[in-house]
Design a protein around this nucleic acid. Sequence first.
RNA 1: GCCCCGGUAGUGUAGUCCGGCCCAGCAUCUAGGCCUUUCGAGUCUAAGACCCGGGUUCGAAUCCCGGCCGGGGCACCA
Length: 505
Amino acid sequence: MLEASSVAAEESRNLSELSNVDKWPKVVMRLAPFPSGPLHIGNARMVVLNDYYVKRYNGELLLVFDDTIGSAEKVVEPDAFEMIPEGLEYLGVEWHRTVYKSDRLELFYKYAVDLIERNEAYVCDCDAEVWRKEHKAKEKACKCSILSVEDNLARWEKMLDGTYPERGAAVRLRTGMADPDPAMRDHVILRISESEHPRVGTRYRVWPLLEYSWGIDDHELVVTHIIRGKDLVKEGKIEQHIWNIYDWQHPELIYYGRLKFQDAKLSKSKSRREVLEGVYTGWDDPRTWSMQSLEKRGIHPDAVRKAMLDLGLSVVDISISMKTVYSENRKLQDASAPRMFFVEAPVWVELTGLPPEIQEAEAPVHPDFPDRGVRQIPLGRSSDAAVPFVAGISERDLKRLTKGEIFRLKDLANFTLKKGRRPEATFHSVEVDNVRTVGGSIIHWIPRETAVPVEVTMIDGAVVTGHGEPSIKNIESGTFLQFERVGFACVFDVGDPVRVAFAHK
RNA sequence: GCCCCGGUAGUGUAGUCCGGCCCAGCAUCUAGGCCUUUCGAGUCUAAGACCCGGGUUCGAAUCCCGGCCGGGGCACCA
């Protein structure tokens, strides 16, 4: 029930029906992340699309960690087994079962033997580079491919028992040396790796490649629809080759194009390095663009979902801006975000002549919803009218003001800027209209005596220090708020200083 | 070099399969007006696109051919 309504609420205009749904008892899809780190914004499309369709068809979603041994460049990061589900939960993805590729090696071995016995695969001990140049490029089968089934089985045993060293032999699928597409010629499907695996250690030394493991598992797990990036079309073709050998029903293959973000540089390996070296504050550092980091910034998961779903399922490569996500987020959260004053690196201005009876300012919690009440901003000033009240404003605002100009400290009073090397201003009046009629600036500010130190982590990781109005101390951690005229941010630490993560303008 | 895929405003996307309802819709971005004690929200307006060339047709973004441009693959990575 809940699921149906959540899908109904999502924009689906750009997403057509899945094909051949009626040919299967129920729709089953899978999420297949390689556990090298947490999910980042670049993975969100794959995740959201699969989740969306599973919900739309009331199907089943599998989380399958694609944790085969990888390579020197692609290393399994053990923490990812925790961080990926965290990211999924943030996104509101509901999966029904978790599977680890590394638990299924025996299955892949069983089929490997069967494929060899059917003479659909053979063990090749050629040097990889030689094979590429002399055999693949020239469409010439190598000597291994004419070996008998018995010889191949013997070689297979030698792969398993350690007779062959790493790279000493590999199992190739007979996809055909004459295939016009060089990518398809007798592809390797299993190879030797003695790297230690974080889950199964060194129990296995022969590991499947992605296209092979999925050729088997998409069938074994009864996956019906596969939505994935178009960088995997060759893998899809090899899977189909395997399905044809066994005459298995083909799952539907759906590809989407590459997604780039103009304003976010995504690199899991760089993030991993920087997190390890302490350059980044952790996997929730904004520069990782992880789900954790978006959550910390108060980006609503539905903003991410909406932005991803709006892209549809086009196979074209696209480049979008995070601004579309931010725009969605504003729509979702502006109405609920309390307003607050924050001044970065305040310039302190002496204000004279403010009537002594004015001891505090009142500002609405949210201008569109007066019923939510007001924030009290105690000025903490002396009751002696001769002592100036000191307020902090941003340097940017000060620079924009011209001498003699009337301006307003929002929700407090109007002042006139005086000349002088130190910024000073004199009280003009209280009524807003006095500044509005002359088109004067209305700026945000904080009182020096009662302001609270605040640290803002910007999107590029820079930490900006400043002060917030006193009431920020009473805000709960996790609150998504708006610093008036500055932007939206999310509080993640209510200590001293109060720490917030900047979300967007 | 060889295979495959794709090209609608700045960015995305709808329409393309089954040609006319599209002198092309929507979102975002940009500019401006209104509103507002925020540079937010809301609201109104403006600007902005069918890669090029042929062909078929009464009629083409939609079909055909050629070209150009872009992307992906050709790993004992995922």
